[in-house]
Amino acid sequence: MRVADLVTAVVLMALGGLALGDSLRLGIGWGTDGPQSGFFPFWLAVIMNAACVVIFVQVLRRPATKPFVSRRQIGPVLAVLWPATAAVALMHVVGLYVAAALYMGFYMRWVGHNRWRAVIPLAIGVPVVAFLVFEMWFLVPMPKGPLEAWLGY
């Protein structure tokens, strides 16, 4: 918990630093007609970084408590996260629908241990329904890949 808290505070300070840098570029003064573009982001970032420093010190002075996540807990969390990340990366190549089918199939079969009988209809059915709803009915375009191009979309 302590390490995670410290790391979070440092990451936030880094983000605050980015905001500070860009604000300085834009100008942080108070012009004749009100504040310049960087005025608010600058002060917001200054206050945020100050608060993060105080949090950092507070946490440092506190004795270490239970760990942020246990080994047992992190397993299922990563089991959700990494296939989802892979699926999003895959969307750039094969489009949303195919990636969604692969992701759902993968998760239901290898993480959820469902039977193929349940997995296949769902993994194919849901993207097909989504395709009908979004591309054909509502005319909301989603990222598409070679398969959809081949189908004329």
Partner: peptide, 10 residues
């Protein structure tokens, strides 16, 4: 849950 989770994420 194992069916709902990927569905929600999609």
């Amino acid at each position: 849950f194992a069916i709902l989770t990927p569905l929600i994420i999609v």
